[in-house]
Amino acid sequence: MRINEINMFKLNMKMKNPFTTSFGTQHTRSFIIVEAKSSKGVSGWGECVTSDSPLYIEEFTDSSWLMLEKFLIPLILNTTIDHPDDVQERFNPYKRNHLAKSAIEGAIWDLYAKTEGIPLATALGGTRTSIEVGVSLGIEDNITNLLANIKEKVAEGYKRIKIKIKPGKDIEVIDTVRQHFPDIPLMVDANSAYTLEDVHVLKEMDKFNLMMIEQPLTAGDLIDHAKLQKEIKTPVCLDESIHSFEDTQKAIELKSGKIINLKIGRVGGLTQSKEIHDLCTQFGIPLWCGGMLESGIGRAHNIAITSLENFTLPGDTASSSRYWEKDIIEPEVVVENGKLTIPDKPGIGFEVDMNELLKNSVEKQTFK
């Protein structure tokens, strides 16, 4: 494939409902969409899953825009790419900036699959025709609202409920949820809000029969998570601690957790995601695909990677309507009874709604 045009779109999309974590509350998502065009006029699409501020990760929308513009796009534009796996090698000289790298690499993967006439899931080696899906619920000031949200999502058939927690919004909240929903598959996500001084609080969570505690300690940490896992029965799930294949190797060796939440953007793309998947398969570490409040383009990439065999736990790829009044793809992502069908059309399997994309765009840049 020869890439002769790349377009970047900066979008501001208002969320259907505010989403609160230990980092704060998001009302609007600011992110980047990348379109890579081949010499044959075929377009591939990728999403840079950033936000306005470097809270979840060190990258933010404006920094990723600059990284793409100044360093990454020049490595791809007007060059020939035999296979998307080659993109990772081209980007290796530049440190980190995984969200930016993932965006353009994702566009190349979509373009490659379309050029080959196969679904992206097939191009990645996926074998599933459908996947089970969970849902992530933010922190609520009013527990009644959280209980109502859980009831609604359980009725919709979601296979797992995740609730966000932080100090002061943890044991009492989980206890109340368990009183109302004693048997649902339930997990909690701390987004790095605790330290080892909170071991007594995290130990107390063992009595609630949780699927896992996601990223309880500092982002990037592996040693303290290993210490914590020895102290508690509930499986620790690593999120912000896993940014690469090498991080995964170290986490497995140190026994820092029993489960990994893989996010394509956080690890730098689909090629790295495949490598992490294969390593975790070898060592019996179950995976699930986390969400970054993506638009339909990023959501489509999540669906494709989750088709691989070792994504054995429900991910966070909920319906488009959970987050947006109108998504930027057609058809929108729709979960039915807690399951998503893997698209069988070439590429990501969804069409980009250009009218909706441009309506939400605040900036566009074209490279030829």
Results as ranks from 00 to 15, higher is better:
N4C: 14
I33R: 02
S39V: 11
G44A: 05
E47P: 10
E47R: 01
L55Q: 07
E58W: 00
D62N: 13
S64K: 07
L66P: 00
K70N: 15
I73P: 05
I81G: 07
F91R: 01
P93A: 07
K95P: 00
A121S: 15
T127Q: 09
V133C: 14
N142Y: 02
T144N: 12
T144H: 13
L146V: 08
E152T: 15
K153T: 11
G157Q: 08
I165T: 14
D170C: 14
V177Y: 08
F181Y: 13
A193T: 01
V199R: 06
H200K: 14
E204C: 11
P235W: 08
V236A: 04
C237P: 11
E246V: 14
D247C: 11
G257P: 09
K258N: 12
I259D: 05
G269V: 08
T271P: 06
K274A: 01
D278C: 00
D278R: 03
C280G: 10
F283M: 10
M292V: 11
L293Q: 10
S295Y: 00
I305R: 02
L313S: 07
D316K: 08
I328H: 04
V335E: 13
D344N: 08
G347N: 10
G347R: 11
I348K: 10
D353I: 03
K368Y: 11
